[in-house]
Design a protein around this nucleic acid. Structure first.
Length: 551
DNA sequence: ATGCAATGAGCCC
DNA sequence: TGGGCTCCCTTGCA
């Protein structure tokens, strides 16, 4: 039997549409026409449904000449057509059949019947047969890759929440970074520009610095010369260097020295990486430009270089782990590009890797740097197996649900830095599955060698999507950011999975707001008061938000 | 329980 | 090229 779906009562739906002010007049007419057509030519499906006519309440009919026809027929909220309805039935989402599959984007079937839904290896496009190999690639294959395969260990999956901070940040989490030397320190950035520093082994030792950036902290990177400081790139147009002990920050780059001059000129920094060999911090903005900063003097080097389409966002930067002259970038122009740092100028990329949509992230594999992994908004992970080989087409395309949603931090598939075989990848999943009556969004572990889903981890209490995930560089630990909360996952045997989690390791933070979903909320906070909105009136909050609108 | 708003990318003209 | 409109599984708050 179908569980109750919220908002299903007919009159409410209809009244809601009636009360849509400006749009309603034209839309209603359209709906009316559609329905009339539907009545005439599709009577077969909706024959039990009734079309009723109802006069508008007298108060609002003055401006309308004729009575408004209101259908009580069920209408799909996606395509506005009768005969079916998209949306949740309990914890199961029913697709609109008129739209392409929400997962693989192909027409003709829905997500429920999509072959990629069950087994991700269906999405693997076989690598093209490469008949030509460079000498370098041959040596690599013979001397390195074969060893890697031989010593490849079983994957260790952090599958149980060990500790968490609920409502740690006052806005959604946008990036996570483990401290390079202090094992239990996790840094987190949020949409408001705040920086969290948390020792998750001493769960209560956490700080949030709120005065570093004015809006979205898009990326963070450590300086290996001084791991007491961290770099940040923000949508406020600045790149920062922050002391983790004091929270004191210096601005390395400010792209908006004259302040807010309108949305067309406001510059934001997204991509960020550190070239350790050259001692250069790299940052890129929403106009396609790359900036370089000398990490010793903190001075900007040279002029910015156009590395992606003029006026388009550069979403990510990644330096090669072994070859300091190689840089990987990706952006909203649907490309990931490989660059030679010695010859950085507009149009001089070594290779352009085309995608069908925006590329959220592009990373070299963490050890050899011979592979490239990209996450694109076309719901595909792409892997190029060898940067020495044919880069014309990706070796694999893995269909995976990580759609764009303006209210979610963009998904980024990340390599497991501990996996010497360079095949394990973690990425959050957008679409939910019905797990015992609860819609959950798992975090997926994928073997990109085969395209197979190795593991999907979830917790019945985490009902929000987890787009931000980071695997620890040394420990078997996963940190995930879901909405405003952070979760630390560790591996557990099946037997250990059965007992209830130790709730004492779940910290409650924030202003205690009650979400529509989520079960961590209770009333016994607050050990944590970094949220300046907590004590403000909603009017004050709205005013404050308006002032940040540019971000 | 439900309405609403925040606000990014794509597409059309 | 840029403005305006639309939008499919969000989330938190009023």
């Amino acid at each position: 039997m179908a569980p109750q779906t919220r908002g299903m009562s007919f009159p409410k739906v209809l009244i809601e549409r009636e009360s849509d002010t400006e749009e309603s007049s034209s839309e209603e007419e359209e709906v009316e026409e559609d329905e009339d057509e539907g009545e005439n030519d599709v009577g077969e499906e909706s024959n039990e449904e009734h079309v009723e006519e109802k006069d508008e309440p007298s108060t609002s009919t003055k401006s309308r000449r004729k009575p408004i026809t209101i259908s009580l027929k069920k209408v799909c909220k996606v395509c506005k057509k009768p005969g079916h309805e998209a949306g949740f039935r309990g914890a199961t989402y029913i697709d609109c059949p008129m739209k392409p599959c929400f997962l693989c984007k192909m027409p003709g079937h829905t997500t429920m019947s999509c072959p990629h839904r069950v087994a991700t290896e269906f999405g693997v496009a076989p690598a093209p047969c490469k008949t030509v190999r460079s000498t370098l690639q041959y040596v690599f294959e013979r001397q390195i890759r074969c060893q890697i395969s031989a010593i490849r260990p079983a994957f260790v999956i952090p599958n149980k929440v060990d500790c968490a901070v609920i409502r740690y940040h006052s806005r959604r989490i946008t990036c996570l970074e483990f401290h390079p030397t202090r094992n239990n320190i996790l840094l987190s950035g949020d949409k408001k520009g705040q920086l969290g520093v948390w020792d998750y082994e001493k769960a209560y030792e956490k700080t949030v610095y709120g005065n570093i950036h004015d809006c979205i902290l898009n990326n963070m990177k450590f300086n290996p010369l001084n791991d007491g400081t961290v770099y940040g790139a923000s949508s406020d147009g600045t790149a920062s260097c922050t002391d983790l002990e004091t929270g004191i920050s210096s601005t390395l780059v400010n792209l908006n020295p004259n302040g807010w001059q309108g949305p067309n000129s406001w510059r934001m920094l997204y991509g960020l990486d550190m070239n350790y060999e050259k001692g250069i911090l790299l940052a890129a903005d929403n106009f396609g430009l790359l900036y370089m900063v000398d990490a010793r003097s903190n001075n900007v080097i040279g002029k910015p270089v156009l590395i992606h389409k003029k006026g388009s966002k550069v979403t990510g930067l990644n330096c090669h782990p072994l070859q300091p002259d190689l840089l990987l970038s990706c952006g909203n122009d649907h490309f990931a590009r490989i660059w030679d740092m010695r010859r950085l100028e507009a149009g001089s990329s070594i290779y352009d890797l085309p995608h069908k949509r925006v590329v959220n992230s592009a990373y070299f594999s963490p050890h050899s740097g011979s592979k490239i992994l990209t996450t694109s908004q076309d719901n595909r992970l792409r892997v190029w197996d060898s940067i020495f080989g044919n880069l014309d087409t990706p070796s694999r395309e893995i269909v995976h649900s990580h759609d764009f949603n303006r209210h979610l931090t963009p998904f980024r598939a990340e390599w497991d830095p501990k996996d010497v075989s360079e095949s394990l990848v973690v990425v959050g999943r957008y679409i939910s599955e019905n797990y015992n009556g609860v819609a959950l969004h798992p975090i997926d572990f994928i073997d990109v060698k085969t395209g197979q889903l190795v593991a999907e981890v979830m917790d019945p209490n985490i009902t929000t999507i987890s787009p931000v995930n980071k695997l620890h560089p040394r420990d078997d630990v996963l940190a995930s950011g879901s909405s405003r909360s952070i979760f630390i996952w560790k591996p557990m045997d099946d037997s250990e999975l059965k007992p209830q989690r130790d709730e004492s390791r779940i910290l409650q933070c924030g202003n205690g707001g009650k979400g529509r979903k989520g079960k961590f909320e209770d009333d016994d906070d607050d050990d944590f008061d970094n949220d300046p909105y907590g004590s403000k009136s909603s009017k004050t909050k709205k005013r404050h938000l308006k002032s940040k609108r540019k971000c």
